[in-house]
Design a protein around this nucleic acid. Structure first.
Lengths: 135, 135
DNA sequence: ATACAAATTCAAGTTAACTTGAAGTCAAGC
DNA sequence: GCTTGACTTCAAGTTAACTTGAATTTGTAT
C-alpha cells in the first residue's frame, strides 16, 4: 500500500502519517524509490492510535504503550490506563449530574444553590492534568 | 480584592486572570490607580470557568455560556452541554471496557481478538471533536 | 522618603498535534 | 516524450490557552 491508500483507509491525512512516522509511532515496510510502502495492517495500528487519542492519551503516551513495530501491547500499562479512564469517567459523571441540576434548578441564583456550590467545589479541587489537543 | 488575592483564592495565576479578562470571561469591579479590584464572588465565577474547562469546554464555549457580568446561566445550553457530556461518558465507558479486555485478553495477538477489533472499530468511527488543551 | 513587593502593559515565547507551502522527483497515461 | 498527479523533503505556519520577560508604576512598611 502506498501512503494515499493508507490515508483513505484510515481517514488520516498523508501529512499526519508522515508526522506519526517522525514521532516513531509508525513505520513503512520500506520504500519504492522514494515512496513509502505500508503493510496492510498499518490500518489497524492507526486505528489503535486513534483509539488512544480518542480516550485522551497524548501521542507520547501512545508511543510508550506499544513498540513502533508489532502490536506489542503492554498489558499492565493498558490496565493502568483503563483505571485512569475510569477515574475520568467518574468525574465527568459527577459533572454531568451537576450540570443537569444547574439546568433544572429553580434557585434564582445558582450561587445560592447548595447542590451547585458542591459541584463548583468538586471542579475546583480537581488537579488539572493535560489533555491532548485533537484537531 | 486585588489580583493577587484572587489568584490565591482561585488557584489561577495572575497572568491567567488578565488573560481571562482579555477574553471577556471576567471583569474587575474597577481600578485603584492601575490595579484591578475584584468583587469577592469572582472566585465562584472562576470556579465555574474551571468547571467548564474541566469537562472539556473551550474558553470560547464558556464565554458563550454566560455573560461577562453576573451569573446569567443559559439553562438550555447547560442541558445541551450535559447531554454532550453524557455521550462522551458513554464513549469513554466503552473504551474503558475495551481497554480492560485488551489488558486481560489472552489472545496472542490483539488483532485476532474479536472484542478488541470491535473496540478499534468503535474508536475509528468516532468523529473527532476538538478537546481544549489544559495546562 | 526610600526601598521593596506587587502591580501594570505589551510583545513574544511555549506546547501539542498537525497543516501548509515551496520546490523538486517520478511512474503512468496519452 | 511530455504532462499530470501523487509522492518526496524541509521549513515554517496554525490554534488554544497560557506563560514569560522587559520596562515601568504604585502601595505599604520601615
Amino acid at each position: 500500500m502506498d501512503i494515499g491508500e493508507v490515508a483513505k483507509a484510515s481517514g488520516l491525512a498523508t501529512s499526519t502519517l508522515r508526522f506519526y512516522e517522525e514521532k516513531g509511532l509508525i513505520k513503512p515496510l520500506g520504500r519504492q524509490g522514494l515512496r513509502r510502502q505500508y503493510a496492510a495492517n498499518i490500518v489497524q495500528r492507526l486505528a489503535l492510535i486513534s483509539l488512544g487519542r480518542n480516550v485522551g492519551f497524548s501521542l507520547d503516551d501512545i508511543g510508550s504503550m506499544f513498540t513502533p513495530e508489532g502490536p506489542e501491547i503492554n498489558r499492565k500499562l493498558l490496565a493502568a490506563k483503563a483505571d485512569e479512564l475510569d477515574k475520568r469517567i467518574k468525574e465527568l459523571t459527577r459533572m454531568r449530574d451537576g450540570l443537569r441540576h444547574a439546568a433544572a434548578c429553580s434557585a434564582a441564583n445558582h450561587f445560592e444553590c447548595p447542590t451547585f456550590l458542591r459541584l463548583l467545589k468538586l471542579a475546583n479541587n480537581r488537579k488539572l492534568k493535560p489533555t491532548p489537543h485533537l484537531r
